[in-house]
Nucleic acid binder design. Structure first.
Lengths: 142, 142
DNA sequence: ATCCACCTTCCTACGATGGGAAGGTAAAGC
DNA sequence: GCTTTACCTTCCCATCGTAGGAAGGTGGAT
C-alpha cells in the first residue's frame, strides 16, 4: 500500500528541504537542535530525510520569522497550529501581544529619530567644527 | 561642600565612575577591552582610576547608545568629539545615515504590524479553532 | 583581626544567524 | 573500476551589547 503511493511522498535531503522551505540548512539543523522541530528520520549513512510535511512546518517557521515572532513565540504558534482543537482566542492573544511589542520597539526607535532630526537640523554640516549633535552628546548634565 | 578644593580632580574607582556616568562597571571594562575608551590608570593594587574627563566620555557613550548608535558609530563620534577641528559635515553625515537606518528598521517593523493587524482583525478570538493567523502562516504557497 | 563592600580576571549565556574546518557519502562522468 | 563534484555530517567560532557568576585580592571601618 505504502509503496503504491510512494511517488506522492517524495522525500529529500536537508538541502532540498532548505530550498523548498526557504530556511537555510544551517538553521534547519539549529531548529532541530533547540527542539523547535522534531528530530527527523535519517538514512543509513546519517543523512536527514524530509517529507512534504516537514517542509511545510519549516515554511511555517520562516513565515513566522518574517512577521518578527521570536523562537519562543513560534514554538507556541507551532503547537497551536498542530492542535486542531485550539481556541482561536489563544492565537489572537499571542498575535496581539506581539503587535504590542513591535509597537513599543517602533516608538522607541521613532523617539531616537525625532531627537536626532532636531539635532541634525540645527547642525550646519559645513567645514566648521560647531555641532549641536556632539554638543548634546557631550553635555555634562542629562 | 567641595569648596575647599574646588578645582581638584577627584578621582574614583570603577564603581564611582559607573554611578556618575550611568554606565555599568561591567560595560566600562568591556568598552576598555574593545578599545572604545583608552586604558585608564591603575592604583598599585590594580584598581582602575577615573577622573571627571573619563566619566564625561562614558556619559557621552551612554547618551549615544540611548540614541541607538552602534559601537562602531560611537567610535567615530568619539573621535570627532575629541577632534576640535572636525568639520560638522562629518558629524551630520553620520547622524543622517543613522536616521536612515533607524527609519528602515521602523518601516520593517511597521510592515509586520500592519500584516498582523489585518490577520488579527479577521480572527474571531473565541473558542473555535478557525484562525486566519495560523491559516496564513501555514499556507502552502507564499 | 574581622567584616563587608568593593575590586580584579575569566568564563558563560542570551537570540538568531552565518562561516568554516575536517571528514563521510551519493551520484555522476570517464 | 576510479575520480570528481556536490552534498552531507558534526563541531567550533563570531557576531552585538549586555549581564551573571565564580574565585580571589584590596580597602577601610569596626
Amino acid at each position: 500500500m505504502k509503496a503504491s503511493i510512494a511517488a506522492a511522498e517524495k522525500s529529500m535531503n536537508i538541502g532540498g528541504a532548505a530550498k523548498a522551505s526557504g530556511v537555510s540548512a544551517k538553521m534547519i539543523r539549529h531548529y532541530e537542535a533547540i527542539g523547535l522541530v522534531p528530530k527527523v528520520r535519517r538514512t543509513d549513512s546519517g543523512y536527514r530525510t524530509y517529507d512534504a510535511n516537514d517542509v511545510h512546518s519549516l515554511s511555517f517557521i520562516r513565515r513566522s520569522r518574517v512577521l518578527g515572532f521570536s523562537m519562543k513565540e513560534i514554538k507556541k504558534l507551532l503547537n497551536l497550529w498542530r492542535n486542531k482543537t485550539r481556541p482561536s482566542s489563544e492565537v489572537k492573544k499571542l498575535a496581539l501581544e506581539h503587535i504590542r511589542d513591535l509597537e513599543k520597539k517602533i516608538s522607541e526607535l521613532q523617539a531616537m529619530v525625532d531627537a536626532l532630526r532636531i539635532l541634525a537640523l540645527k547642525c550646519n554640516g559645513d567645514d566648521r567644527p560647531e555641532c549641536p549633535i556632539l554638543g548634546k552628546l557631550g553635555e555634562i548634565k542629562d
